[in-house]
Amino acid sequence: MILELDNVTVTFTAGPPFRREHVHAMRGVSLYVAEGETLGLVGESGSGKTTASRVALGLQRPTAGAVRFEGKPFPKRRRELAGHMQAVLQHPHWSLNPRMRVGASVAEPLAVLGEKAPDRVHEMLERVGLEAGLATRYPHELSGGQRQRVSIARALVTRPRFLVFDEAVSALDVSVQAQILNLIKDLQREFGFSALFISHDLGVVRYIADRIAVMRGGEVVETADTATFYTAPAHEYSKRLLEAL
């Protein structure tokens, strides 16, 4: 197991002490991502998908429950996981620092680890289907699809064992979406990373995920193999989602 969430609950509190309001973003969620597989996490907005990804990345401490990465409990300091897990996030427009050259953005995860390897940056850019010469450009000179490719290059440059794709293709055109999804599949075959792929788009998840988990109101209502899920969904809510597709 690369990643396991064991009965994880996340509760946000809001309001003054005498009238605290508790919002359960996740209630007793158990998930796992096995070696080399892609788990698709679907659900409508507000279902707790993003909180789940934040917990998986160690950005959000669970209120209750346990998270294990490669069989070990999460370290107290997030930095110990540096380079082992990365993410590709939603907005192509904000995924890259506009004041940093593309090459510097891709090199950042390496720089954080104290490594310098310009050739790895160039190599990585070529692996994601971009010219190495793009390293000296600024993000505003790139298209949305190119920027998302750069984000993928940045995420993969440290050769992480686990990646989170949080709505990574949702903001792109359909034709570009297909290209990026194919790229992710190819790279996964090459690098062998495990992935948590979060999306509200069932069509996209079907294409990329090996297994699917459906979240609703902070709970996982169904987990199934992709083939099984799309032919014979077990939960009432899953059926409704698929009918709407």
């Binding site: 990345l57 950005l59 997030r78 930095r79 996981l81 540096a82 380079g83 897990m85 990365q86 993410a87 996030l89 939603q90 907005h91 904000w94 995924s95 890259l96 620092n97 004041r99 940093m100 953005s105 950042e108 995860p109 720089a111 954080v112 680890l113 984000s151 940045r154 995420a155 440290t158």
Partner: peptide, 23 residues
Amino acid sequence: DYVTAAIISGARLPRILGRHLLP
């Protein structure tokens, strides 16, 4: 997102503030 990505990569506070916020 680029700030979040830097945090996920394990960037320390001076780098996040100096390289991402300040510019």
